[in-house]
Write a protein that binds this DNA or RNA. Structure first.
Lengths: 268, 268
DNA sequence: TTTATATGTTTGCTATAGAACGAATTCGTA
DNA sequence: TACGAATTCGTTCTATAGCAAACATATAAA
């Protein structure tokens, strides 16, 4: 037996018994007591034990107060926008009806929608967002179907060729899409190509398209353009937007849902 | 014999025995001790083993001295079996080589393997386990592909028709399967039909099948039978199993890797 | 050819582990 | 409390095995 093995064994034994005797170890490991003493000496240097006459006892670790961590979920619900996301989700949840088959593309607002889904029954959720799928499946009356694909650690969502293929297999009543930009001229846009591809894949396979967008993202254009605005049936946002937009959207036949809290908060 | 062959043999030998001596290997492989030392040096750099005077022992990520505190993730690592799961994962991780394309079926052991994957490079992980996919994608040098399907809230994994279809699109080097029962007569079995179906789907599409099984699940048969034992190339478990099994497995040409915590079990 | 890689041999040097023995300690008993 | 026996300890010494480094050889690649 190698020294390192012997020491490993002594460590384990000590952790179990909290104390060891030289004699006992010597017999157990079939080496001389001198050797055991030398081993214990090493372990004492490591700070693992305190030697005593005839053996050693386990040293109590001074715990470096690490009890603070243990964050639960990775979505930054501490983000400054968290409330706004939830406001939008609060509106959007009412658009969903029992028995609906919906797609929730990956994103924070859709995560909040998924958390509220236990209010509904017999809803089938198609999503590429891992956290959305977990929330949506938490209620036994609903069902979540996750799209396969390459996992993006940052967004906790699947993308890529497999995702696009999987999407083709489904047809949904409603798709909820979070966008990073809405603009009269450029339409709707998102900031990553993966998300753009995903949305483009699902659009043809959905009856009703519902755009979710922070009020602050109106009049903005993100890097990847998806389509013109008029593909959408509904837009949900958190703040009142100016009248020109309202008119424009109503001309296109798009329903605009706005969080009523917007005014109270006094935000623009 | 090429160096690369020799090193592969040493690896396997080490995984089986948990320790090797320079002298022993030198005789066994008919090369000088210097050569063996140089090989061990390489393997130590790879993080596979720890060299010691006279040989080397298999490296364990789970240091017994700090096994107490700092539990991180939501899977019940507080479960009494947690350490055993991790022991098995500690062995299994050494079976994975850089550049491998592997399947990790859903389960706790595979979750532990996924957490250790940051030691490896360019590994592609196919999985139906959401948590596994997140862990496996956390390192930028690796890649995770999640199988689509119906999400099961309890196991945080995907199952069903879509999962089976998605699996057909891939072929992997190695598949790691956690089973709930191993028996000489009945072969390998699991406790849910979903998992049984999943495993049956991937088996034809994998070159090497590696079974992960708690020692306590030997001689047991879970509800859903999967196949005979001889489809597996390797079995990894956490405790010594009796000699009749060892003989039987070696007759079938199955390599048995065992993690032994010698003292705990009192056998030296 | 040169160059690089893999392996073996030789040569001190070092690590390991046991023996010996005086010093320190524990402990039972007076 | 005191004292002696028994145990345990630390130190030194020794034999053995294992080690790294330098050098040598062979084989393959450029």
């Amino acid at each position: 037996m190698f020294a390192i093995e012997r020491i490993r064994i002594i460590k384990n034994y000590l952790l179990e018994k909290n104390k060891v005797s030289v004699n006992e170890l010597s017999k157990m490991l079939d080496v001389s007591e001198v050797t055991i003493r030398r081993d214990l000496e090493k372990l004492e240097e490591e700070g693992m034990l305190i030697r005593t006459h005839g053996g050693a006892v386990l040293k109590k670790q001074t715990n470096p107060s690490n009890s603070n961590n243990m964050k639960t979920k990775s979505t930054d619900s501490t983000s400054p926008y968290s409330d706004l996301y939830e406001e939008i989700a609060d509106i959007a949840i009412h658009i969903i009806e029992n028995g609906d088959v919906i797609m929730l593309a990956n994103g924070i607002i859709n995560y909040h929608i998924a958390k509220k889904l236990d209010q509904k029954k017999n809803v089938t959720v198609l999503t590429n967002d891992l956290l959305v799928s977990i929330e949506a499946s938490s209620s036994s009356s609903n069902k979540a179907v996750l799209l396969g694909g390459d996992v993006d650690y940052e967004t906790k969502a699947t993308f890529g060729a497999l995702t696009a293929m999987d999407i083709q297999k489904f047809y949904v009543n409603k798709v909820f899409i979070e966008v990073d930009g809405i603009d009269v001229d450029t339409g709707i846009s998102v900031s990553t190509i993966d998300k753009a591809n995903l949305i483009n894949s699902i659009l043809p396979n959905s009856k009703e398209k519902i755009i979710l967008c922070l009020g602050s993202n109106f009049n903005k254009t993100a890097f990847y353009n998806i389509s013109r605005l008029d593909i959408a049936e509904k837009i949900v946002t958190n703040s009142n937007i100016d009248n020109s937009y309202k008119e424009y959207l109503s001309q296109l036949g798009i329903q605009l849902y706005t969080s009523i809290n917007a005014v109270e908060r006094g935000n623009i």
